[in-house]
Amino acid sequence: MELFLHQLLAGIATGGIYACMALAVVMIYQSIDHFNFAQGEMAMFSTYIAWQLLAWGWPYWGAFAATVALSFIGGVVIERTLFKPIRNAPVLSHIVVFIAMFSILNSVAGFTWEYTIKSFPSPFPSEPLFGNRLISAHDLGMIGITVVLLVLLYVLFRHTRLGLAMRAAAANPESARLVGIRVGWMVALGWGLAAAIGAIAGMMIAPIVFLEPNMMLGILLYGLAGAVVGGLTSPVGAVIGGFAVGIVENLAGTFIPVIGKELKLTIALVLIVAVLMIKPSGLFGRTAVSRV
């Protein structure tokens, strides 16, 4: 029982990482209507920027804010320069450009900051909170930040004109133009937001997994699993999905003997596929017509 509880909490903790990433995935999905393979690499790159600022002696929260702002601008710039010119190209060509971005960011990060593992500080206290040893202060802080982000996004999308315009632009660009929405800028804004959220996710994750150019590969995958399990159209679903993946991964890894460490990833994937089989639009996602 003790072991179960411990693994459950550990699952929630890693689930927080995935939830954070899943949120970023859903964000970009909502604003560009497909999945950005380079999302994890963008987050990794942002985290390196934060690391560099810290190395230059910036205070943590200053570096944090600057990184988020820079990432936002970076996201917007990437959309405007890389994707605007090929707006009318087929989706597969876009995917290839994502792949290209992936290799560029990964390679440049490795070249600039080297492939050795770096540690990244946590803004939260290192001693366990309230004397409990099951979940660290950083894990709790990370989960808290995820929840705050979620609330902010919810307010943005559901209760502001800008959010409404962004949703409209993603769902039906042609009609959106016909009501005067500048669709191109909405998409760019979506990229900016996704990059900013990715940056936050990266800075929250790096203290746990350490900083290196390939740190995001597996995490993006789990985040994606979370997003898909939860439903790509639902930010809340994505966060819940992220936690679910974390918990299942930990419990399955501990309690099903043949699985062990190596197959944890495969389990996450089997989970994606299984959920997709039963509910093709995810647990909380909605198909085009169904009232929520």
Binding site: A168, A171, S175, I181, R286
Partner: peptide
């Protein structure tokens, strides 16, 4: 559109995933 030209397109151009009221709100974006 900003010059005051409204277009009711062929095929209606509904934002299917948004609510009726959100659709109307978009008209006045």
């Amino acid at each position: 559109v900003r010059l005051g030209v409204a277009h009711v397109p062929e095929g209606r151009g509904t934002f299917v995933r948004l609510t009726v009221e959100e659709n109307l709100g978009l008209g006045a974006m």
